[in-house]
Design a protein around this nucleic acid. Structure first.
Length: 793
DNA sequence: TTAGGTCGGGG
DNA sequence: GTGTACGACCTAA
């Protein structure tokens, strides 16, 4: 007799295994008790065929049934009422025993002349299970299960799922065991090479705070590899974190293990770590989260290293954590004292990765649950794929067939409005902006792939015509995007209401906050997703129309402002800068909201605002005395610290102390110090990203040349890596004088380049607006004569 | 001088 | 591998 019981279960990782009869979907996760369990679900993979001629569905079904016997492995073919891009369709659903059978079946049947399309055969079994059962990873579910056994798996319990699980609203995360790890390898010249350089040390920190370090003799790492495997098996972590382990640590461990013919059995199912979707390394049964991936979502951190991320999150000092980053270890290893420091550095990296992980944990969990992607995948997936996954999750409830990704041409379209700013200083400026403009425009105008009217002629009362571009969308029924966005917005509203009623210091409050953030991220990404050729639900006209409505909306605001005689100073996309005349601004807001049905609010008020001649570049003083700097060199990652620091100080003096004279004097001194060689080399480094392999650049560029130098030295540089270079003294093109800053001494730096091409342009962007003169700054007097004159006038 | 390549950050 | 608008530098001609 089968004994059923019900468990509360939190899926952490999902994979599938083929059996003869079905596909076994394995949900690895945690129970309420803290037990590690495996819940096994089974499914027959299926796909859909769309007949060319809708009336013929029964005939085609018979045709398919006759043929499918040739493939033997199919289970069932039946007609299903679905929607495809909103249109009701009768599709033929063909269930197969295994994924292989499905692939074969789909490949052959879709060739039939009576078949127009084959759909959903590109959905992997784990995803299929998630969608069909509404089980999103990283959330609580009540499962009806029966106990079973699978020898050799590292779990406390194994169950078979019976029937549909149910989502349970519990605002807590199960007790999770985290392991942070970091490996340090031998490198003679440049980056360590797993083909010849052994691992020197493997540092591990198990929460809470239990650190250990496996140290090799510097020649043979077999023993520490074996020990590493046994330590992981003993600790049995649910989550493994590190920094860059998807691209470095795991591949290195994998190759070293292969060399020693050791099975890297660190997962819960007796297989080995392997590369999987979105380039992450999957460790079955555990969540392998690369914090370098997660850090991509922290735009405040420009050059992403574990140290800079840790420092941003206030858990460590950057210098400590990055101390030996990109340093050849062979020399350090030879000296007893330096070796000690290297090992300490390695230990600290494992330790701090846990601290970083804990701070990013709740958000990552909520993003995983919102998108339906397991933790390890959601961390590695780009924005577009997160949205894709969320939409696929929602498609079932809306009975929509999931479109396949199609190869299609990229056609650019017109974007938002940006006004020409009025250069100079303005007092009391209010910044008004629309709340979630694009999502709301998509909802209000029902912009969606399934409501888009192509060739069809429809009565004008039934459609919305988009300004400028003239596209048409059906008013009814609600489109796919409208349903998705309204749902996201309403869930977010519910969360906000709950937040108000929850103790601000409680765990529940924190989880709700992160959930709200995750939902906001997905909501805001929908417009961009809609205009991305890689999107499953891509229809260019949808995104193009949202942009056109955005332009129309902004223009209407300008008109209303004009009718109120309220001067508009600047405008960009969904924001309008106006003179802060309170009564007029209030009138404007009321009028805009009532006429357009969208929320607009005062985002901030600048007491003083400096516009340059350029769009998207300004600096404003907020009432609390802080400086808001937008678009200027200060906030950019591709200007030297020297230029950024000088510009920032100049802005402070000009806006806070209102003294151009003082700013000019400051700059004069700053340049003097620079020329005197008083700045550290790091202040001269300019960082730029390699956006393609170094060989595929069409032109010679400084950062690419610096990258080539590093590569010649043995460093491995990949697409996406940032290169820090300085311009050195000498003749010739700039690119020929660019050198990696780590290989350059301050004496080699071309100070005049930095004065002329970095510090002065950045500072003059600001001071030029106030009438200061470059020659005066450079003159020995510090420009006092001119600025005295300006101050008086 | 000008055009094109490249990059980063804004809303 | 979310969109477009924009500014700025540098190279190459």
């Amino acid at each position: 007799m089968v004994v059923l019981r019900s468990i509360f279960f939190w899926p952490l990782d999902i994979n599938h295994e083929a059996t003869d009869e079905t596909v076994e979907v394995r949900l690895w996760g945690k129970e309420e008790s803290g037990a590690t369990s495996l819940v096994i679900g089974s499914l027959n993979p299926y796909f859909y065929l769309l007949p060319k001629n809708a009336e013929n569905v029964q005939t085609v079904l018979r045709e398919v049934e006759d043929l499918k016997s040739q493939y033997g492995e199919t289970v069932k073919a039946e007609v299903a009422d679905k929607k495809y891009f909103g249109k009701p369709v009768q599709a033929i659903r063909i269930k197969c025993r295994t994924s292989e059978a499905m692939e074969k079946c789909s490949k052959n049947l879709s060739k039939l002349p009576s078949i127009k399309e084959h759909l959903e055969d590109d959905i992997r079994p784990a995803t299929r299970y998630i969608i069909d059962n509404g089980v999103s990873p990283s959330g609580w579910y009540e499962f009806e299960v029966s106990k079973t056994a699978r020898p050799g798996l590292m779990v406390d319990n194994v169950y078979e799922a019976v029937g549909q699980p149910e989502a349970v609203e519990v605002l807590k995360t199960p007790k999770i065991k985290i392991l942070g790890f970091s490996i340090t390898c031998l490198s003679e010249k440049g980056s360590p090479n797993p083909a010849r350089n052994p691992i020197l040390a493997i540092s591990m920190t198990a929460d809470p705070g239990r650190s250990e370090q496996l140290i090799s003799d510097g020649k043979n790492d077999r023993q520490i590899l074996e020990e590493f495997i046994s330590r992981i098996r003993k600790l049995d972590p649910d989550v493994i974190v590190g920094y860059g382990q998807n691209s470095f640590d795991w591949p290195y461990l994998i190759e070293r293990s292969k060399k020693h013919k050791i099975a890297l059995s660190v997962d819960r199912s007796g297989t080995e770590p392997h590369r999987s979707v979105y380039g992450h390394i999957s460790v079955t049964g555990r969540a392998n989260i690369d914090l370098a991936d997660v850090s991509e979502d922290i735009p405040e951190v420009k050059v992403k290293t574990l140290g800079s991320v840790a420092e941003f999150l206030q858990v460590a000092n950057r210098i400590d954590i990055d101390r030996f980053l990109n340093v050849e270890t062979a020399e350090l290893w030879r000296s007893a004292e330096k070796r000690k420091a290297l090992l300490e550095y390695s230990r600290r990296r494992a330790e701090v990765s846990i601290k970083v992980a804990k701070l990013l944990w709740d958000f990552t969990v909520q993003l995983s649950n919102t998108t339906g992607l397991p933790l390890d995948q959601v961390a590695a997936a780009a924005v577009g794929f997160r949205v894709d996954s969320h939409l696929m999750m929602q498609s079932r409830e809306l009975n929509e067939l999931i479109p396949r990704r199609r190869e299609q041409p990229y056609i650019p379209y017109e974007g938002a409005i940006v006004l020409e700013p009025k250069p100079g200083v303005h007092d009391n400026v209010a910044v008004l902006d629309f709340t979630a403009m694009y999502p709301n425009l998509m909802i209000i105008n029902n912009l969606s792939p399934d409501t888009f009217v192509g060739q069809e002629e429809l009565p004008s009362s039934e459609v919305i015509t988009v300004p400028e571009v003239g596209f048409k969308f059906r008013k009814k029924p609600p489109g796919f995007y409208k349903c998705i966005l309204e749902n996201l917005i309403s869930v977010r509203k519910e969360i906000k209401a709950k937040l108000d009623k929850t103790d601000r210091k409680s765990i529940e409050h924190r989880i709700l906050r992160e959930r709200e953030k995750a939902i906001k991220v997905i909501t805001n990404a929908c417009y961009g997703y809609a205009g991305w050729v890689g999107a499953r639900w891509y229809v260019r006209e949808v995104a193009e129309s949202a942009a056109a409505f955005g332009r129309d909306t902004l223009r209407r605001v300008f008109k209303i402002a004009e009718s109120l005689a309220l001067p508009v100073i600047y405008g960009d996309t969904d924001a309008v800068f106006v003179e802060y005349d309170r009564p007029k601004v209030d009138k404007l807001l009321t009028k805009v909201e009532s006429e357009m049905g969208m929320e607009i609010k005062i985002d901030k008020v600048y007491s003083r605002l400096l516009f340059t001649e350029a769009k998207k570049k300004y600096a404003g003083l907020l009432p609390d005395g802080t400086l808001d700097i937008v678009g200027l060199e200060v906030v950019r990652g591709d200007w030297s610290n020297a230029a950024k620091a000088a510009q920032e100080r100049v802005l402070e003096i000009v806006l806070m102390e209102k003294s151009t004279h003082k700013a000019v004097q400051y700059l004069h001194e700053f340049i003097g110090n620079l020329r005197a060689g008083e700045l550290p080399i790091t202040d001269f480094a300019i960082w730029k990203t390699l956006t393609k392999p170094v060989d595929s650049y069409q032109v010679k560029a400084p950062h690419v040349e610096a990258a080539k130098t590093l590569i010649r030295q043995g460093w491995s540089l990949n697409v996406g890596d940032k290169v820090g270079f300085v311009i050195t003294k000498g003749a010739g093109k700039l690119y020929s004088r660019a050198k990696p800053y780590t290989m350059t001494s301050p004496a080699e730096v071309d100070f005049e380049y930095y004065v002329t091409n970095q510090v002065l342009p950045a500072a003059m962007r600001v001071l030029g607006m106030l009438g200061a003169d470059e020659a005066a700054i450079l003159s020995s007097s510090g420009g006092s004569a001119l600025s005295d004159y300006l101050e008086r006038s």
